[in-house]
Simulated assay, not measured.
Amino acid sequence: MNIFNIIDSFQKFDGDAVGRLEHASRRMFMNRIGSKLAAAAIPVAFGTIVNKAFGATPTATDVLNYALTLEYLENEFYMIGNGTSGLIKTEYAPVFTQIGKHEKAHVDFLVAALAASAVKKPTFDFPAVFPTVFTDFATFVTVSKALEDTGVRAYKGQAGNLITSKPLLEYALQIHSVEARHASIARRILGKISGDATIKGWISNDTGFPAAVYAGEGNVVQGTLNLPGVAGLEAISFTNITEAFDEPLTMDEVLKIAGPFIKAM
């Protein structure tokens, strides 16, 4: 979700940023994000673009640091969870280990891109919001699911800003699809360990916990069409229609979800 904020800022402050991104290998950027090569090369490439496009512009720096703060939060969550002995069941450990590697790569990328302007990592307190998050596996997976579902909706909330830039929209949609798969596996794991058959790999209606993450997902009006009233959809249930579309989250809505975990900056 945070990459969208970066790309959106590129578009607003530097119309030539798209051109300077063209030389970068998409395969390296998307498929080798976890490799040592990408870890070294991507921050340098984006750091150059950030410096040229923004300089010392406070607004751009604030946007990038907002992205970094969210990545700090997610990285910290998985770092603590993966490092807590006995918390994650053995069969699911590879899944959360891999997600943790992704979040670490995001943090490293943003820190390198921002250089001296990078905000320091805040102090997080996950148990203050969910007391058993690192002692109970079901709670840990519940929070993981919520973070990933928030990310998917946050990506969609920024997609409209990229509609005129095919290269950047392509990058963003590739990242978005990976985040969606993360959300899906976390949801499926929670459904399995809880025995709750209503928890599937996708969101139904606006049902879920915490409620703020799923607010608005019960919407069935897409564009100007009220889908339950569209000819040919009479046999499709209201619930199934909501499952077919994810709704966006604004930056303010995302901050309200993530903010309670931040103890101090």
Rank of each mutant, 00 (worst) to 15 (best):
N205L: 14
V213P: 04
G157D: 04
R188L: 15
L169C: 01
S177K: 13
G216T: 04
A172Y: 09
T198I: 05
I163Q: 03
A159K: 00
A215P: 05
G223Y: 04
V213F: 05
L168N: 03
P210A: 04
V178F: 13
K166H: 05
A180D: 06
N205W: 09
T164Q: 13
Y214G: 07
L190K: 09
I175Y: 06
V213I: 10
G218I: 07
A159M: 05
R188E: 14
R181G: 13
A197F: 09
S204N: 13
L168K: 00
S177V: 10
V213D: 05
R187M: 03
E217N: 15
I203M: 07
A180M: 12
I199G: 01
W202Y: 15
R181A: 15
L190N: 07
D206V: 10
E179V: 04
H182K: 02
V213Y: 03
A186R: 06
Y214Q: 08
E179D: 04
S165N: 15
I193F: 05
R188Y: 11
L169F: 10
N205Y: 11
P210L: 02
I189C: 01
A211R: 15
E170Y: 09
E217K: 05
Y214C: 08
I203T: 15
A215S: 14
A197T: 14
T164R: 12
N219R: 03
S177F: 15
Q158G: 03
Y171W: 09
T207C: 05
D206K: 12
N161E: 04
G157W: 00
K200Q: 14
A183T: 10
Q158N: 05
H182S: 07
L190G: 07
G191R: 09
